[in-house]
């Protein structure tokens, strides 16, 4: 019965463990996306990321988090019915024909932070924030998606894997292999995305995991014992090259269009020491969001395919 409620109309993409279809919900003609999880390929049961996605999306209901409409089984395959979102932030950044205003950037960052704040207050770490996973609805709303790597904060002595987050958006403590990190890793990713929105190119594009450490600290300075006292605990720390931290002027030159408040917020989110890094509440209450220009309303944000 439920099976007939949704139709699959067009195949739009295929990942390693899922096929994504475009479809319609019959009862109210709403456009939806169906993620069909291939169960057959996995001998030891369902893929982890599918379970994670269902587990966390079911819990959350927020404008800036993708909505999980339904879950059903069909032909022995698990199907996730998700809200249909036609674009993502990466496509917008890469489309050279689209111009951003500072107000647009502010609006996107604001919506990202609201989504992250909602995850964090529910003690869920997203662990894979990047422009590609920030989807844009037809009404311009930005939504966090792909909770395949998400995790809730378990009991405090649990070991977390440090092999999470797409490399360019990985926080320094993860690069050093930390096993007890916090929501601060998501905030780092948001900081990098903010920088990327202003530059229109990836801010810290490391070629491999070792290079990522180098690129990160070349841009932001190597942390010292003084600003991150326990850093020498990480075994990788002693082998790295030392770079001086960038001065305000250097940052200003790199981000020409940014205001002082924008730079302050960005360096807050890109603090190397996770203890000093701003959390979502501090970021959202920053002066940057209050000063002019006001963030663009979602409906007026630039969209793919011309204005």
């Amino acid at each position: 019965m439920l099976r007939n409620e949704y139709t699959k109309e067009k195949r739009v993409g295929e990942g390693t463990y899922a096929v994504v279809y475009l479809g319609t919900k019959q009862s109210n003609n709403r456009k939806i996306a169906i993620k069909e999880i291939k169960t057959s390929g996995f001998k030891d049961g369902l893929d982890m990321s599918a379970i994670r996605e269902v587990k966390y999306l079911q819990e959350m209901n927020h404008v800036n988090v993708i909505e999980l409409v339904d879950v059903f089984m069909a032909q022995n395959n698990l199907n996730l019915v998700l809200e249909f979102l036609p674009a993502d932030l990466e496509m917008i950044i890469k489309d050279q024909s689209i111009l951003f205003t500072p107000a647009d950037i502010k609006s996107w960052l604001l919506m990202t932070l609201r989504g992250v704040h909602h995850c964090h207050r529910n003690f869920i770490l997203h662990r894979d924030l990047k422009p590609n996973n920030l989807l844009l609805g037809p009404d311009g709303q930005l939504k966090l998606a792909d909770f395949g790597l998400a995790r809730n904060l378990g009991s405090p002595q649990d070991l977390l894997t440090s092999n999470v987050v797409t490399r360019w958006y990985r926080a320094p403590e993860l690069l050093f292999g930390a096993r007890h990190y916090t929501g601060a890793i998501d905030m780092w990713s948001v900081g990098v995305i903010f920088a990327e929105l202003m530059l229109r190119i990836p801010y810290l594009p490391g070629k491999d995991d070792v290079d990522q450490i180098d690129v990160t600290f070349r841009a932001l300075g190597t942390p010292t014992d003084k600003d991150w006292p326990e850093i020498s605990t990480f075994s990788a720390y002693n082998k790295i090259q030392f770079y001086p931290p960038p001065s305000r002027d250097e940052l200003r030159k790199r981000f020409i269009a940014a205001t002082e408040n924008a730079l302050y917020l960005m360096s807050g989110m890109l603090s190397l020491n996770p203890h000093k890094r701003w959390d979502s509440i501090k970021a959202l209450t920053s002066q940057y969001f209050v000063e002019l220009p006001e963030p663009t309303t979602p409906e007026e944000l630039p969209k793919l395919g011309g204005k």
Binding site: F123, H180, R277
Partner: peptide
């Protein structure tokens, strides 16, 4: 938990006991 807060590898990764307490209370 107070013990964890004194472990160097915990502090270095950003671990804070008050986060844990906050979560438990919530």
């Amino acid at each position: 938990i107070n013990d964890l807060q004194n472990k160097r590898e915990f502090i270095a990764s950003g671990f804070r006991a008050d986060f844990v307490y906050d979560r438990m209370l919530t």
